[in-house]
Design a protein around this nucleic acid. Structure first.
Length: 899
RNA sequence: GCGAGAGUGGUGGAAUUGGUAGACACGCUAGAUUUAGGAUCUAGUGCUGCUAAGGCGUGGGGGUUCGAGUCCCCCCUCUCGUACCA
């Protein structure tokens, strides 16, 4: 071994770390400060890791190694979120038990993660599908149940009669099943719900103290969707019923000219006029067929039907018609609205379409043209009856006045509503956690704790039952059981929990994976929680993070955990896109299309993939360069057929500039731009992959992959090798010597230490790497490379490229491993220069530089004197009047002249 | 529509509080070395000027300042999230 060959050294060190349990977390040591670094654990798919995984995982690995070297007790675990649909779908197709698929995939993932050199404590590996784990998932469900936070309700699911199964939302596309394209309807089924809404306010307010990206917090706030307003009761004419509505604009009550109920509203059948019944039923049937997506159609073409019934506006005393329309959602507010077409866009549109009266009650716009919704400047008008007048009040004042009046009269009250809905917690699937619930005499009954875990039965086939129930419903001997307390016959719950369940609390199990008395022991939980750093993809911004926070708060309330929030700091890694692609489009008429024409073009498009060297920059875009236009390119026909061509363009094609679309796309199998980490490791090694993933750009940012970028960092690693090793003999270079470092060498080292340290602390891994590169570029010029300097450099490198660092560390005669060495400290005094270079500006433009000895650098008179006599500066001063001299110590000199 | 974020060389990206824009890397050009190389080394590389002096440059327009990528106002584009939430 002489050259830098990652394949030779990487597996060796991976084995060393494994054998020596280098990254095992010492749980007993309470003297050190703790640091808990967590990755969002993966779903072990059959496809293996994609390059997005190692991005976040490398970042956390760097932080974990860095913190360890800084004297922290570091917890950095990994596990598997292994329940879920793909393994089940595979089981339906092939008959393979999901457990077998899962195990195989987990082994693949573990091998891949180890091959990247991540320093996980593998003794804490967890798997959501293991009975030791889901026992406690079920246990937590029991706690939720006993707190009254779990209940059953009839909720519409995506039922596909042809497939005889219930589909997840993502399996439904445009109201049809993804598989087969069969119609999907909404069918109510009995389901478990979790009352996350009870925690809405706490989930909202506790966001404030979290060190999370503002965008994520904002998304959660929007999701929770708190709004303040009032509930108002409207009497139904002729029968003894009230319709309660929620409104955020009680000030517009005088303008409520009709009401609308959601089709599912419970009063629909009671109030409908017999003459209208047929029409209403037809409408209800119509809306039932629509999926949620259809109902929120982008064209917003509103539909509805008049019930024939009237309500009474409590302030105007007028009869107002009651309509049914699916633009009102049963799941929000009270499922009914007072419609104020003058001041609500949706109501305005509806009123226009069905010719309902529009009344202006807030002045400022023209309600015949559009709804006026400005709440800042609007003033109430036409809002007076015998008892109350809002006229002249601003919106806020009017709201307050009317709300007070309503509650005095018993007609309404101030109300807060949340968009957040209860969590649908049932899936009609096999491969999930069984509920620890039985039904005795048809009533749900939680199983006692000693019956946990409730195991999944073995089944012959994984096809859905055909009734919409899960495959478990067909296993009679499992479904039929007895109540362990009374001995009565009982049936098991046949739904299973959704995939979110296992991921809601996994961060706790890592802390104490073998604990048998609960999910986690009190003492260890106390030490390790909260998670100090949580890194993962932004796709979990809302659901996973909100669900996990909800469970955590429940566990907090029952004393299982000691912190209000689970994840103190959150960082989202940005998506990695495929390599940049250059595409020229050609219409079916044979003409090439420029970017601007593309959007409006309706016909079939032929895509021509060209390479970067076939292009030249013109203006803001790229055009085909006639000189290289003849080189090979790929033509993709509208039917998807690919064809390799050279000399594709004719001379006349190239007379006009052909602008090309330049962008990179999300990696996808169908596009064929997926990068497999295994291939990168094989070609360039794990260290190069790790380094490249960090060097691409800021962690949080979306960024395109580039293979030549990988080569760039690979070349850097080779340089590091050659900085220390003679690549012909494999021995240490003669330049390496145990000598005292020269001043310049110390300066280079300490600059690197400072930059790398600060950049890891600030999650700026890309610029940290550039600091390492600058050091190596410098050190390669040194005739003597002091051992101590080289050693410190390797420690700086080690979180990024641990295999290479270990190997060279050993070659320099040190004991492995670098992982437990103390992190180098920089010394500010070694960073100072002998002299200060000032840029000298004249009227804000740099015209020269001067070198001032450091001990004189703050001497204003001297520096200005030198600046004014600098030849490059002098010629801009000649013949001009010097009006001002700016001197900022250690920064800049600026001379302002006139004339 | 609403909310959030971002626009810097041919490319990915630097620029910590307003103080020499383009660090580091890719790519490219020229040269050296090598049997060869997607290896290595040296030099160059924002645009525009004949090598020059200079001029112009951080999406566009205005402003504050001795000085603006950075601060303020207006506009444009892109990305992400969200979507009849009363």
């Amino acid at each position: 071994m002489s050259d830098y060959k990652p394949s030779d050294i990487e597996s060796k060190w991976q084995q060393y770390w494994d054998n020596n349990k280098t990254f095992k977390t010492d749980d007993s040591d309470r003297s050190k400060p703790k640091y808990y670094v967590l990755d969002m654990f993966p779903y072990p798919s059959g496809a293996g890791l994609h390059v997005g995984h190692p991005e976040g995982y490398t970042a956390t690995d760097i932080v974990a190694r860095y913190k360890r070297m800084n004297g922290f007790n570091v917890l950095h675990p990994m596990g598997w979120d292994a329940f879920g649909l793909p393994a089940e779908q595979y089981a339906v197709k092939t008959g393979t038990h999901p457990r077998i698929t899962t195990e195989k995939n987990v082994n693949g993932f573990r091998r891949q993660l180890k091959s990247l050199g991540f320093g996980y404590d593998w003794d804490r590996e967890i798997n959501t599908t293991s009975p030791d784990y889901f026992k406690w998932t079920q246990w937590i469900f029991l706690q939720l149940y006993s707190k009254g936070l779990a209940y059953q309700a009839d909720v519409a699911v995506n039922w596909c009669p042809e497939l005889g199964t219930v589909l997840a939302n993502e399996e439904v596309i445009d109201g049809k099943s993804e598989v087969g394209g069969f119609p999907v309807i909404r069918k109510p089924m009995k389901q478990w719900m979790l009352k996350i809404t009870e925690y809405a306010e706490r989930l909202l307010t506790d966001l404030d103290d979290l060190d999370w990206p503002e965008s994520i917090k904002e998304m959660q706030r929007n999701w929770i969707g708190k709004s303040s307003g009032a509930n108002v009761d409207f009497a139904v004419k002729g029968i003894d019923e009230k319709i309660s509505v929620f409104t955020t604009r009680p000030d517009t009550l005088f303008g409520a000219t009709y009401m609308v109920l959601a089709p599912e509203h419970e009063l629909v059948q009671k109030i409908v006029d017999s003459g209208k019944k047929e029409e209403v039923d037809a409408y209800l049937k119509e809306t039932e067929k629509k999926s949620d997506l259809d109902r929120t159609d982008l064209n917003k073409n509103k539909t509805g039907v008049f019930t024939g019934a009237y309500a009474v506006n409590p302030v105007t005393g007028k009869d107002i018609p009651i309509w049914i329309a699916d633009y009102v959602l049963i799941s929000y507010g009270t499922g009914a609205i007072m419609a104020v077409p003058g001041h609500d866009e949706r109501d305005w549109e509806f009123a226009q379409k069905f010719d309902l009266p529009i009344v202006e009650v807030v002045k400022g716009g023209d309600v015949t043209k559009a709804a006026f919704t400005d709440t800042a400047d609007g003033v109430a008008v036409n809002s007076t009856n015998d008892e109350i007048s809002l006229d002249g009040l601003k919106v806020d004042e009017a709201k307050e006045r009317i709300t007070l009046w309503l509650s005095e009269k018993g007609l309404g009250e101030a109300t807060v509503t949340y968009k957040l809905r209860d969590w649908l917690f049932s899936r009609q699937r096999y491969w999930g956690e069984p509920f620890p619930v039985i039904f005795v005499d048809g009533k749900p009954k939680p199983l006692p704790e000693d019956q946990l875990p409730v195991m999944l039965p073995e089944v012959e086939k994984y096809e859905p039952s055909g009734t919409g129930e899960s495959p478990l419903a067909t296993i009679e001997e499992w479904v039929n059981t007895t109540d362990p307390e009374t001995g009565k016959p009982a049936r098991r719950e046949t739904n299973t929990m959704p995939q979110w369940a296992g991921s809601c609390w996994y961060y706790l199990r890592y802390i104490d994976p073998d604990y048998t008395e609960g999910p986690v022991s009190k003492e260890k939980e106390n030490y390790w929680m909260p998670v100090d750093l949580y890194v993962g993809g932004a796709e979990h911004a809302v659901l996973h993070l909100l669900y996990a926070r909800f469970w955590h708060k429940v566990l907090y309330d029952i004393g299982v955990v000691s912190t209000k929030e689970p994840f103190q700091k959150l960082v989202n890694q940005g998506m990695i896109l495929g390599e940049m692609e250059y595409t020229l489009y050609r219409g079916s008429d044979g003409n090439f299309l420029s970017q601007d024409d593309l959007e409006s073009y309706e016909g079939d498009l032929t895509r021509i993939k060209v390479t970067a060297e076939q292009l030249s920059k013109k203006g803001d875009g790229f055009v085909i360069n006639p000189q290289n236009a003849g080189r090979p390119l790929t033509v993709i026909h509208p039917d998807g057929k690919r064809e390799e061509k050279s000399d594709y363009f004719t001379a006349s094609d190239l007379e006009n500039d052909l602008y090309v679309e330049a962008r990179s796309y999300k990696m996808s199998k169908s596009r064929g731009n997926v990068i497999n980490p295994d291939d990168v490791v094989e070609q360039y090694g794990a260290d190069a992959l790790r380094l490249y993933e960090m060097f691409m750009g800021p962690l949080e940012q979306v960024k395109p992959w580039s293979m030549s970028g990988v080569e760039g960092v690979y070349r850097f690693l080779k340089r590091v090798w050659r900085m220390i090793v003679d690549d012909r003999s494999g021995n240490l270079l003669p330049e390496i010597a145990d000598v005292e470092a020269a001043k310049a060498q110390e300066k280079a080292l300490h600059e690197a230490i400072k930059k790398v340290t600060e950049d890891i602390e600030g999650f700026r891994f890309n610029t940290g790497i550039s600091a390492l590169m600058i050091f190596v570029n410098e050190a390669m010029k040194w005739e003597k490379r002091p051992l101590s300097v080289m050693n410190d450099f390797l420690l700086l490198l080690s979180p990024y490229a641990p295999h290479l660092a270990e190997e060279l560390w050993l070659k320099l005669g040190n004991e492995p491993s670098v992982a437990h060495q103390p992190w180098p400290k920089y010394d500010e005094s070694k960073l100072v220069d002998d002299s200060k270079t000032y840029a000298v500006q004249v009227n804000g433009k740099v015209r020269g530089q001067i070198n001032v000895p450091m001990d004189q650098a703050k001497n204003k008179d001297l520096v200005l004197e030198m600046a004014k006599s600098e030849p490059g500066v002098l010629k801009y001063l000649e013949g001009k009047e010097l009006v001002k001299e700016i001197f900022v110590p250690l920064k800049i000199v600026n001379l302002v002249v006139k004339g």
